[in-house]
Design a protein around this nucleic acid. Structure first.
Length: 344
DNA sequence: AACAAACTCAACCGCCCGATA
DNA sequence: TTATCGGGCGGTTGAGTTTGT
């Protein structure tokens, strides 16, 4: 038994850089027959290449719509936001954002290379010293310019790994949610406090270190019964203070924890059952986004999870808070038939 | 101009996961 | 339930290029 040896081990196969003739062969074959069946594709296309190599060449270089050239400041900003929000799983979301026109034509490999070669080093530098690197590039300058526009220009606002966040409770009582947000010191993309009490004293704003657990309402304050009582079947919205001004969101709760997922997707496979317990046990011991979301969606397929998080992240990254919160309300109303009071 | 160091990025590799028989 | 297979992810390599001295 054991694994079938990778075709890359075969000596008869070409290695290294692709020639124009090979590119032409591959592109014309896929144009006629479509993608897929990579294992047998080289033989059918007349290529002396490993199937994996063909796939990589197509996806990262030959595929229509590939965008080449320097990463723009906006693209870099989005990469940083995604990585902070999603960790290394960001690469999976590149396609989502490419489809959505946020990172048009950028491949996962390109993003990965850019992250490994440029951004990760810069973040390390930033974390070791708040001053700009002497070898700063134009992108560095752009990032620095963006930081200067932030409310706290001397603070490192981007972390190489996700920052623990404080979860707040958004329930059918809008005022309650706003109060808790303010207690938690939340703000929107521009550093504004959320909610209708904007005229009130703004919450204290601060940045959190990677290993610091911010004080706030934690998800383990909530039991499942609470979650069921929440109009939106227990969505938790956490103000996010790393990686710029993002938010994070997870969903759980209901009598059947997976019901939220089914409702969101408009599907119900009737198989998913969530055991009784408090929210903390559902979400795990920590409340990092990376731990939160897999727990919340652990019973769904990766595709479903990607779909949901993609939808949410889309709003987080591009829309106003009003728009985002309205989206959540809309989801709840449309899918669950709940009648929520908007927080503002 | 020459060399070395640093950087970029296409490509490779090993492992993992889901589907299927 | 288990083995097999296809496909994909994340880490790494190394050739080519750029930058610094």
């Amino acid at each position: 038994m054991g694994r079938k040896p990778c075709c890359s081990k075969e000596d008869s196969l070409n290695r290294g850089a692709w020639t124009a003739a090979e590119d032409e062969l591959l592109a014309s074959y896929i144009a006629k027959n479509g993608e897929g069946k990579w294992g047998s594709l080289p033989k059918r296309a007349g290529l002396k290449r490993c199937g994996k190599s063909c796939r990589l060449r197509w996806l990262n270089y030959l595929r229509p719509g590939i965008k080449r050239g320097n990463i723009s400041a906006d693209e870099e900003d989005l990469i940083l936001r995604l990585h902070t929000l999603l960790g290394n799983r960001q690469l999976k979301f590149v396609d989502i954002y490419a489809d959505a026109g946020r990172l048009p034509g950028r491949t996962d490999n390109e993003i990965k290379n850019y992250w490994n070669s440029t951004l990760s080093k810069r973040l390390l530098t930033n974390n070791n010293s708040s001053s700009a690197s002497p070898a700063a590039t134009s992108s560095d300058a752009a990032a620095a310019a963006r930081r200067r526009r932030s409310p706290e220009p001397n603070t490192v606002i981007v972390s190489p790994r996700p920052i623990r966040t404080k979860a707040i409770r958004w329930c059918s009582s809008g005022n309650r949610a706003v109060q808790q947000q303010q207690q938690a010191g939340s703000s929107d993309h521009n550093g504004r406090p959320l909610g209708e009490e904007e005229q009130a004293a703004p919450p204290q704003q601060r940045e959190y270190d990677c290993d610091e657990m911010p004080p706030a309402v934690c998800v383990d304050d909530l039991g499942l019964d609470d979650m069921i009582d929440l109009g939106l079947d227990g969505f938790l919205i956490s103000p996010w203070r790393g990686g710029g001004y993002d938010y994070e969101l997870g969903g759980c709760g209901g009598e059947d924890g997976a019901a939220d997922l089914d409702a969101l997707l408009g599907e119900d496979d009737g198989e998913q059952q969530q055991e009784e317990g408090d929210v903390a046990s559902l979400l795990g011991d920590d409340y990092d986004y990376l731990e939160l979301s897999p727990c919340v969606f652990r019973r769904s397929s990766q595709h479903e999870e990607d779909h949901i998080i993609g939808l949410v992240a889309e709003e987080l990254l591009t829309q106003s808070d009003d728009h985002f919160l309205n989206l959540i309300v809309q989801i709840g109303m449309e899918q669950n038939g709940t009648n929520l009071n908007k927080p503002h």
